[in-house]
Computed example of a mutant assay.
Amino acid sequence: MIRSARKRHWSRWLYRVQWTLLAIIALAVAAVRLGLLHYLTAFEVFKYAGLAAVAVALASILVFIWGLVKRHPEARSAALWATILGAIPVAIPLFTVGEHNFRAPPIHDISTDLKNPPAFEAVLSLRGPGDNRADYAGDAVASQQRNSPLYEDIQPLLLNMTVAEATELAASVAEELGWRVVAKSPNKGRLEAVARTPVLGFTEDVVVRVKKEGQGVTVDIRSASRSRAADFGSNGQRIRTFLKEMTSRAEGR
Rank of each mutant, 00 (worst) to 15 (best):
L150R: 06
A183G: 05
E176T: 15
T162S: 12
L158F: 15
N160H: 13
L158A: 07
P156C: 06
I154H: 10
R180C: 09
E152I: 15
P186N: 06
P186R: 06
E168V: 03
P156R: 10
S148V: 12
M161R: 06
L150D: 02
E168W: 10
R180H: 10
S172Y: 13
S148Y: 09
Y151M: 04
I154G: 07
L158Q: 14
L158M: 08
T162P: 04
L157R: 02
M161I: 03
A174C: 12
V182M: 09
L150V: 07
E152H: 15
E152M: 12
V173D: 02
L169V: 03
P156F: 11
L169A: 02
A183P: 03
S172M: 14
N187V: 12
A183S: 07
K184F: 09
T167G: 00
A183K: 05
K184T: 06
V181D: 00
S185Y: 10
N147G: 09
E168A: 03
N147F: 13
E168K: 07
N147L: 15
A166V: 00
V163M: 00
I154R: 11
T167S: 03
L157M: 12
N187E: 14
V181R: 01
N160R: 13
A170V: 04
E175H: 11
V163W: 00
Y151I: 05
P186M: 04
P156N: 09
A166D: 01
E168N: 09
K184L: 09
V182A: 04
D153N: 14
E165Q: 02
L159A: 04
A174W: 06
E165T: 02
A183D: 08
G178S: 11
V182L: 06
N187P: 10
Y151Q: 04
L158C: 09
V182K: 05
A171V: 05
Y151C: 01
T167I: 05
N187H: 09
A164H: 00
I154A: 06
E168Q: 08
M161G: 01
T167M: 01
